[in-house]
């Protein structure tokens, strides 16, 4: 198993993800520069949070056209795992690897706080260590996390079981901190190998930070990779 973390000009959560993968989970991990069309043999490609190209025009719009993106698309289409966190999620939407788009938050403000999430899917490579209905606490930090698509497309998204995480209150009741349609916080593609979410699991993956709810996301990927290798062997 090898992980690649893409670095765009302005990425600022790249080292956090690298730390979790390399130092907490002891997985071989490399940085991938946005201008190099090379994934260096990565099995998991992470598009991290932060800002890319100043997020001019729309968050993720410029990054969605950078040289490494064609390789990420090829990797995804071949069934490879792609994880987009925050700005990385916005890039996946702009690339069209995931459906929909992000509007400015409903309250117009940059939202930087812990939110609660309901786990909707626990059968993905990214979520196998969670269970459906489990309530997680994770930090968000974004200005454009207000998920949008047409009602028809949202119905299709739900029908195809592409909603992975939904915002909720601490007791699991409905909550929607940024105005997202149907409380959507994270979605996957139809095959389940591309996953994007606004909250930051890499910022809540060790005891020292007071919250480890994010770690299971990364360990899920490692577990599924190990299982896949066993099947191959």
């Amino acid at each position: 198993m090898k992980c690649g973390v893409v670095v765009f000009p302005g990425s600022n959560c790249d080292h956090d993800v690298y730390h979790v993968l390399k130092h907490l989970l002891n997985v071989e991990t490399v940085f991938l520069w946005h201008d190099d069309a090379d994934l260096k043999g990565s099995d998991l490609v992470v598009l991290p949070g932060g800002f890319s190209y100043g997020d001019y025009l729309r968050a993720g719009a410029m990054a969605g056209l950078s040289p490494i993106v064609d390789e990420v698309r090829r990797h995804a289409e071949a069934g490879g795992l792609v994880l987009g966190i925050c700005n990385g999620f916005q890039i996946l939407l702009e690339m069209g690897l995931l459906p929909g788009a992000m509007r400015r938050n409903l309250g117009q403000r940059f939202l930087c706080r812990d939110v609660h999430l309901e786990v909707v899917r626990d059968d993905l490579a990214f979520t196998s260590q969670y269970s459906v209905g489990q309530i997680l606490r994770m930090p968000v930090a974004h200005a454009e996390g207000n998920y949008f698509d047409t009602p028809k497309n949202l119905d299709a998204l739900e029908k195809n079981r592409q909603v992975v995480f939904r915002y909720c209150d601490p007791g699991g009741g409905p909550d929607d901190p940024n105005g997202s349609e149907r409380g959507i916080a994270g979605i996957c593609n139809r095959d389940g190998n591309v996953f994007g979410l606004m909250p930051h699991p890499e910022r809540c993956s060790e005891e020292l930070l007071g919250n480890v709810d994010g770690l299971a996301l990364f360990s899920s990927v490692m577990k599924s990779a190990a299982a896949a290798m066993e099947v191959e062997a």
Binding site: L57, R58, A61, L65, L93, E94, P99, G100, A101, R103, F148, D149
Partner: peptide, 9 residues
């Protein structure tokens, strides 16, 4: 279509 507008919204 390619860059300036996001046709979803």
């Amino acid at each position: 279509d390619k860059l300036l507008a996001n046709r979803v919204m």
